[in-house]
Amino acid sequence: MIRERHLNALVLGALLALPLWGFWAEAPFMITLATRAAILALAAVGLNLALGLGGLVSLGHAAFFGVGGYAAGILALHAQSFTPMMTWPITIQGTTSMPLIWLVAVVASALAALGIGALSLRTSGVYFIMITLAFGQMLYYFAVALPAYGGEDGVSIYVRNAFPGLNTLRPLPFFAICYVLLGLALLLSWRISVSPFGLALSAARQSEARVRTVGIEPYRLRLVAFVISGAITGLAGALFADLNRFVSPAMLSWHLSGEFIVLVVLGGVGRLLGPVVGAGLFVFLEHWLGGVSDHWMIFLGAALLLVVLFARGGLIGGLTAGSRS
């Protein structure tokens, strides 16, 4: 059995090696696949903070993904068509600068998570799942009803947004950006998990009464975790928009929320690199089995079933057989 730390290094190494090999072998689709995996992993790292550490089963995380995506799409649209986003009371222009777009995406999705979390976190269990789902659907239909931004058809980003000093139009630099952001999010999520905050959040998942008895209010912990979680997933949404050069209400759909949960469960709930392993496997199956059969989701379902039945702690848990460090 392999130690979790070594497995983590292996996974991150593989995710880096794949696109490099794709570059060398002149197989750019490999780079695109790895980029897709990294972005989905980033979204799931966000979810894992709420789901794994906090025990908050959110079925509405696509909402934050979509908010981040639309932030990127809308800002880019206005910049490319040279129309200001608004003129009153102040004039706000669009932008094609990735860092600026990320900032807006993170703030917007954090605010969305604050609003949704503040209300949903008053409930728990299946009610929490349903309320997050309901909020996600509200945002979905809101996006569908946005004629200015394409309604059901969404928004196209004609040219991928720019990052100072890098040519983001080429696959490898764009992958590097996504990979580094994923690494930073993992670092953040690791720091949080070993902090006093993470300890209390994890304890609140296991025994709410215990946390209250030492004078800590679980609601506040969960709200903060939910906001950070939503912000990370929102950042992933902005990258996803740039990867596809397209955003549509599908980014907010509850199917995608469900897929994020699947990614986390496949890789290992609460495991630091669970989302990365889950996203990697997901993209792998989607690509290779998707080419064989339109019904590749059946295989995903089977994989999920096996993991849930036989590997507590997902693939990471199964491969490390419980040795946690």
């Binding site: 720091r191 993470g198 300890l199 030492v214 903060v224």
Partner: peptide
Amino acid sequence: AMELTVLENALLGAVGRSGQVMRLFRSA
């Protein structure tokens, strides 16, 4: 909290006592 270690459970009390639960970036 059954999944935490004995020390971590005790630390939780210490965290509550210290009022520093919103510290996100230092190791407990």
